[in-house]
């Protein structure tokens, strides 16, 4: 198992947002969590990557227990979290942002080849390499955020709502890249609000409501489920 989450509970101050999540992600699998806004998907990812200390439960990554480790210790192990809202370094250039993605020593050595690969995946970024991140458009920022996540030697990629706030054309660019990435990587845990873009990429899908995974199956199985279909398929049903 690449990632095992057991009874994970997390939240802010007194409030508990993630309520006992169990989740297993196999080697070279892409698992997609779908659920409405504000139900705790982002909080779950933050608890996995250590940005938020879990209140209870365990997280195992690659045979190692990581729920008491610090966030900055996880990237060198190959657990890479691309956060919701990009979190770029606004006054670093595009290229510097990408290079920061290769900060762990093992990745730093191969940074030039990785940079070339990211530029091949997102040619737009090559044109903008000397531009400060704060001057980019929303779609370009998202591409930098994804590219930066690919600069590390990732074994598991956590991606939080990569389509959020993007024009449909850009969403296609982003998902074309994600498909390539998912095919190469050992594991991807992806979060989205609905099924709109994930049909082709998801090996398994979990429906996340009120801090729990309430249903699990292949995209096709869930699409056949009436309740799920009504809530999440929207226009594409």
């Amino acid at each position: 198992m690449l990632l095992s989450v057991r009874g994970l509970t997390a939240g802010y101050e007194e409030t508990c947002v993630v309520r006992g999540v169990d989740l297993d992600l196999r080697e070279s699998e892409t698992f997609v969590l779908v659920g409405p806004n504000g139900h705790g998907k982002t909080t779950l990812l933050r608890a996995i990557s250590g940005l938020l200390r879990p209140q209870a439960g365990e997280v195992w990554f690659d045979g190692r227990r990581i729920d008491q480790m610090r966030t900055e210790e996880l990237a060198p192990l190959g657990l890479v979290h691309i956060p919701q809202g990009d979190h770029l370094f606004p006054d670093l250039t595009v290229e510097e942002n990408l290079l920061m993605g290769a900060f762990p020593r093992a990745s730093w050595r191969g940074r030039r080849q990785r940079l070339d690969r990211v530029y091949a995946l997102f040619p737009r970024l090559a044109d903008r390499r000397r531009q400060r991140a704060r001057t980019l458009s929303g779609g370009e920022r998202r591409q930098v955020a994804l590219g930066r996540g690919l600069m590390q030697e990732a074994r598991l990629l956590l991606v939080d709502e990569p389509s959020l706030g993007l024009a449909p054309v850009i969403v296609d660019v982003v998902y074309d890249a994600l498909k390539q990435i998912a095919a190469e990587l050992t594991g991807v845990l992806l979060v989205e609000e609905n099924f709109a873009h994930i049909g082709e990429i998801a090996d398994r899908v979990g429906v996340f409501e009120m801090g729990r995974i309430v249903r699990e199956g292949s995209a096709a199985e869930l699409a056949a489920d009436r309740m799920v279909a009504e809530s999440y398929l929207g226009g594409i049903a």
Binding site: S49, L51, R70, T71, E72, E73, L74, A75, P76, V80, H81, P83, H87, L88, F89, P90, D91, L92, M100, G101, F103, P104, R148, Q152
Partner: peptide, 12 residues
């Protein structure tokens, strides 16, 4: 510029 993003990159 962004301390939590820097942590996600593995900066100690």
């Amino acid at each position: 510029q962004d301390i939590s993003a820097a942590r996600l990159m593995g900066v100690p």
